[in-house]
Design a protein around this nucleic acid. Structure first.
Lengths: 357, 357
DNA sequence: CTTTAGCACTCCGACTTTCTGAGTGCTAAG
DNA sequence: CTTAGCACTCAGAAAGTCGGAGTGCTAAAG
C-alpha cells in the first residue's frame, strides 16, 4: 500500500533527523522538523502506523523511532531530495581529478582518498576489466645479464619489470625476442598464453635459455593482476562514528574491508546503473549487515569498468554521498577516456535490492 | 646507582607480567613469577624502592605496579632475554621474503604486511635514498601522439609513464630524444636537472614542441618521489589492544601514522644500529608519547636505506618484535642486494635514546 | 472518521551508593 | 634484613535511585 503524503513527510523527517543526530527521534521533534499543522499526538498515531508497516522501529518502548532498512530504502528511492553539490565541492572534485598522465592505479588511489575526504567515510575503489590484453611488448637490453620488460596493456596501463639472470645473453637476442613477442603475443589475453604457444615461440626464436618463458611468465602474471584490483582508504574514519564506539565492531568491519576479495564481490552485480545503494541487510556479507554501501560505477575505457564507493553506517547522508560519488564517477569516466559517463548526475538513478519487505 | 640482582629480577618480572596481562602487577604475582625465596612483604619493599628510583609506578595507591618508560628502557637495554625465533617463524619470514624480481615498492608493501601479521601491530616501512640518479632513459614510440618513457633509476627501480600529446611527432624524433637523454641525463640527480640543462638539450635535439620538457618533467618528478616513501599497514590491529579501548585514542594515532611525513621523520636519526626501540616519551612526536616504536634498518643497495618497524603500546613484547624485525631486515638487506646486513641477529644491538632518567 | 488534550505508564541512562577484594604501607617481632 | 600481621585505600562492579523523554491509550471535540 502506498503511503500517504503525510506519512512520507514524517518518514523523511525521521530519517533525516536520525541521520543528523544518531538518536531515536520523537514525535515532537518530527513535528517541529516537518512543520506539519497538527499535534504531536497525531504524529504519534502516524508513527505507530509507520512502525506497523515496518518502516520504523523503536529501540525499546518509550524511546523515539529509528528507521529500519526498509525505511531507509523508501527514503533513498522516493523521499530523498537530490543534493546539489556546492560550487566548492564540484571544484574540489574537479581539482582532485586533474590527474592526466598518472597511471590507473595511482589515479584510483588518489580518488579513493578524495572520496574519503569528501564524505568522511572509508572509500573503496574497485576496477575490473572484461579482458585485458597486451598491446605492446618492449624489451630494453641493459647488460649481458639483465633487461627490462615493458608492457603496454589495454587500458593504457604500462607495466615493467627488471629481469636479472644468472647467465648472459646478447643485445641481439633481446631485440629479436622483442620483435617476436610483439608479433605473436599482442592482442591476446591471459588464457591464450599456453605452454604450447611459449614452446613454439621458443623454437621460432631459437631461445635455449628460457628467456621466452621468463617473459611469458611476466605477461601472464601481469595480465592476471591487471584484470582488477580493489583498495580501501580512510578506514579510520569509522572510529569517529557513534555506531562504532565499540572498537570490536570497527575492527571487524575494517578487517573485512581490508580483504580485497571481499571488496571485489561487492562489485559482482549484474545490473548496475549509475549509483547503487546497499542498505544494511541488503548486503550479502554478514559483516556489512549493519552498514550501508554506496557505489558509483564509471567507465574506464577499453572494456574496463571501475567502481568507487564508500562504506558507512546505515545512518548515512545518502543524498550527499550519492551526489558526490556520482560526480566523481562521471569525472573519472571522462578522465579515463571512457567517453561520457553512463549517465550524468542529472539523471541520477539509484538502484538497489528492493526485495526486502 | 646500579640495581641489585634481585631488583632487576623483580623489574623484569613486572615488565613481562604486565606485557602479558596489561594489568598492574602486585607483589604476590611477582613472587610467583620470579620464584624468589622470600615473602611478598620483601617484594613489596623492593617494589617501593623501584618505585622511588622511577622504574615503576602505581596507577593509584593500592594498585599493583606498572613499568615506567624508564623501566621499559632498562628492561630493553639489559634485562630482556633475546628471543630466538622458532623454526616456523624463520621459515615464514624466509617464505615471505621470496620476492625476487618484484619492484622495491611491491616488496616493501608485502613485507609490511608480513610484519603486521607476525607481530600483530601496525607495521611501517620507510625507504630513503641518499641520492637517486637516472641510470637509463628509454623512449618507446607508440603512435604519432604517444610514447612511453621508461626510466631506470639507481636501486634498480624502473618507472614508466605513458605520454599522450595533442600534437604529433615522428618515431625518429623519439629515437633521437632517447639517445640525447641517455647521454646527458644519466647519472645526475634531481637538482642537476636545471632549466638551463633542459633548454640546452632542447636546442641540441632541435625540439620545438616541448617534448624535452615533458620528459625532463617526468624525470624530476620521479626522482623526487623515488627518494623515499613511507607506508603503514595493519593499523586496525590497534583496536584489539586494551590501551586503545577508547576509539578516540586509536583514531588519533592512526591519523598520525597515515601521514607519511610523520613516518619519514621517524627515520631521521643520525645514529642507527640494527634495531632501535623508542619507548613512549622517547618519541619526539606527541602522538607517540604513549606508544613504542621498534625500527630495524636494512641496506637496500645503491645508497638506499630502508626501515621496517612496528608501532604498538609501550607494553609491547619487545624481544619478540625486535627479533622478528631484525631477521626481516637482515633478509631484506640480502634480497635487495645490499649484501650482508649491517649486523646479524646474533649481534643484535638495540639502540635508543637513553637520555631520560 | 480524524484530531487532540490529557494522563498513566515505561524504561533508558545518568547518577549515587554500597560493597568487595586486591593490593598497599607500616609496625613490630624474629 | 626479613616477615607476619593488620589497618587502610581505592577502583571497579553491583545494586539502587531518580528524572524525564517519549510512549500508548482514552475520551472528548471537530
Amino acid at each position: 500500500m502506498e503511503l500517504s503524503q503525510r506519512r512520507k513527510k514524517i518518514l523523511r523527517a525521521v530519517v533525516e533527523e536520525y541521520i543528523d543526530s544518531a538518536e531515536p527521534v520523537g514525535s515532537k521533534t518530527v513535528l517541529s522538523r516537518t512543520g506539519l499543522d497538527c499535534s504531536s499526538a497525531t504524529i504519534r498515531n502516524e508513527l505507530v502506523a509507520l512502525d506497523k508497516e515496518g518502516y520504523l522501529e523503536q529501540p525499546h518502548t518509550s524511546a523515539g523511532r529509528v528507521p529500519t532498512a526498509k525505511g531507509y530504502r523508501l527514503y533513498v528511492n522516493e523521499l530523498m531530495r537530490e543534493r546539489e553539490l556546492t560550487r566548492d565541492e564540484t571544484e574540489a572534485i574537479n581539482r582532485g581529478l586533474d590527474l592526466h598522465g598518472r597511471g590507473h592505479e595511482k589515479i584510483m588511489d588518489t580518488v579513493g582518498h578524495m572520496a574519503t575526504e569528501l564524505t568522511s567515510y572509508p572509500a573503496l575503489t574497485i576496477s575490473a576489466a572484461a579482458a585485458v590484453t597486451v598491446k605492446r611488448v618492449e624489451l630494453i637490453y641493459l647488460d649481458p645479464n639483465s633487461f627490462i620488460i615493458v608492457l603496454l596493456l589495454t587500458g593504457d596501463t604500462v607495466k615493467n619489470k627488471l629481469v636479472h639472470l644468472p647467465f648472459s645473453f646478447s643485445q641481439v637476442t633481446i631485440t629479436r625476442l622483442s620483435a617476436v613477442f610483439n608479433s605473436s603475443f599482442t592482442g591476446i589475453s591471459e588464457e591464450k598464453i599456453t605452454p604450447e604457444l611459449i614452446a613454439s615461440t621458443e623454437r621460432a626464436v631459437g631461445d635455449t635459455m628460457g628467456l621466452t618463458s621468463v617473459i611469458a611468465g611476466f605477461l601472464i602474471e601481469t595480465l592476471a593482476t591487471a584484470k582488477g584490483g580493489a583498495n580501501v582508504s580512510g578506514e579510520a574514519n569509522l572510529l569517529k562514528l557513534p555506531e562504532f564506539r565499540d572498537p570490536e565492531k570497527a575492527h571487524k568491519l575494517i578487517n573485512y574491508l581490508s580483504n580485497s576479495e571481499n571488496l571485489a564481490s561487492l562489485s559482482a552485480s549484474p545490473d548496475f546503473g549509475d549509483v547503487k545503494v546497499l542498505i544494511g541487510p541488503e548486503n550479502a556479507a554478514l559483516e556489512l549487515k549493519d552498514s550501508s554501501v554506496v557505489l558509483a560505477s564509471y567507465n574506464a575505457g577499453d572494456n574496463m569498468r571501475g567502481i568507487i564507493g564508500v562504506v558507512g553506517p546505515t545512518r548515512m547522508d545518502y543524498s550527499a554521498v550519492a551526489a558526490k560519488l556520482a560526480y566523481i564517477a562521471e569525472g573519472l569516466s571522462k578522465l579515463l577516456g571512457g567517453g561520457a559517463a553512463t549517465s550524468g548526475y542529472g539523471k541520477l538513478m539509484i538502484k538497489g535490492d528492493d526485495s526486502d519487505g
